[in-house]
Amino acid sequence: MEDETTIDWEQIHRRLKAVETAIGREFIPTEQNKKEILRTRAEQLAREDGREPTAEETLEVIEFCLATETYALEMAYVQEVYSLKEITPLPCVPSFVKGIVNVRGQIFSVIDLKEFFALPTEELAALNKVIIMHTDDMEFGILVDNIIGGRSVPRKAIQPAPSTLTGVQGKYAKGVTSERLIILDAAKILTDRRMIVNENVGG
């Protein structure tokens, strides 16, 4: 009973001391840590085949999230990725045109691919990213939920879009990898007629 009512301050002080020392100490990896890290890295390196894939054999893409799906765009059409800070809405544009942004003095229009693909939309999140795409005569940004990063996809691994991908998505899909990564046809999107806005207000 005594032990239950009396607080073991000794133990508490000891534990606090341990925490203090742990916080105060700089992180110096022990031999064990070092070995672990090196082993992990070796495994990663071992997994990649030793052969350097050529540009012809692989396709450089940028992965990104859109709703629940993972999509990819050819890196050749990507100029830059950009963390969306503010957007200026534009009047008299289709609903998928969210507005315009200013990236280092350049003005780009921003398209919401979810609207474009008729996917379920969410409110504009603060951490939304913009992928700025470009061809020779066209450049605009697309709004995505998150950017995963760039990767190389072997061309062989790309299969034609399955029949389950219908509608707008199917129309713009270039192919699907075995990891269910939908590679979008950037050229098609960029050259889509809908992108050319010619609206006459009040006309």
Binding site: E60, I62, V78, E80, Y82, I147, G149, G150
Partner: peptide, 8 residues
């Protein structure tokens, strides 16, 4: 993002 841009 910087890494992505760098890879681009």
């Amino acid at each position: 993002l910087l890494a992505v841009n760098a890879s681009i």
